[in-house]
């Protein structure tokens, strides 16, 4: 990423302006042609710096009010396989392996699911458990949302790595 890439990302990471020609407006602010801004965004997407470009949906507002984190206890030698299986399910938005704390927390694979009812959550979780053959899991239904912000951002300082 060069300085212009960074300027573009910093300008649009909180949202493009909802005007007739959003990319032309941003290009004018940065001082480059509109075609260049679009070409650079496309390139950053191909390089994987931008995972996707589009609307961030407010899931709760759009009816996905039953959200849950499921923590699975997966034997070490099956983590790669099970992680891949969970990741392949369209109902799963996040899937990670996390460190365990022996004796205190031994559920090592985490998935997030977002449904319209707790019933749907339970149904999806059962489906995942059967598919992967992992009977030991905890379903942590989300309650109140205290904070939610964009976690991956470019800031003005130099803490991020060059790509």
């Amino acid at each position: 990423m060069d300085a212009i890439d960074r300027a573009i990302v910093m300008r649009v990471q909180d949202g493009i302006p909802l005007v007739d020609h959003p990319f032309a407006d941003v290009a004018r602010e940065i001082g480059i042609p509109e075609q260049e801004i679009l070409a650079r965004i496309e390139r950053l997407r191909n390089e994987g710096v931008i995972r996707r470009f589009g609307a961030r949906i407010n899931n709760r507002r759009c009816g996905f009010t039953a959200n849950a984190m499921i923590a699975w206890k997966v034997p070490e030698e099956r983590v790669e396989e099970v992680g891949g299986l969970f990741a392949g399910n369209p109902g799963v938005t996040h899937c990670y392996e996390r460190k365990i704390i022996p004796g205190r927390w031994e559920h090592n694979v985490f998935t997030m699911v977002h449904c319209q009812s707790e019933n749907d959550v339970n149904h999806l979780v059962e489906q995942l458990a059967n598919m992967a053959g992992v009977p030991d899991y905890l379903v942590l239904i989300s309650g109140e949302e205290f904070k939610r912000t964009v976690s991956v951002r470019i800031t003005g300082d130099t803490e991020k790595a060059e790509v």
Partner: peptide, 21 residues
Amino acid sequence: QEAGFIRSIAPVLESALVTSR
């Protein structure tokens, strides 16, 4: 967006590539 269904229209960044945090 004003009614809160859309948070923003923006790029989703790959953390491993844009930050070393």
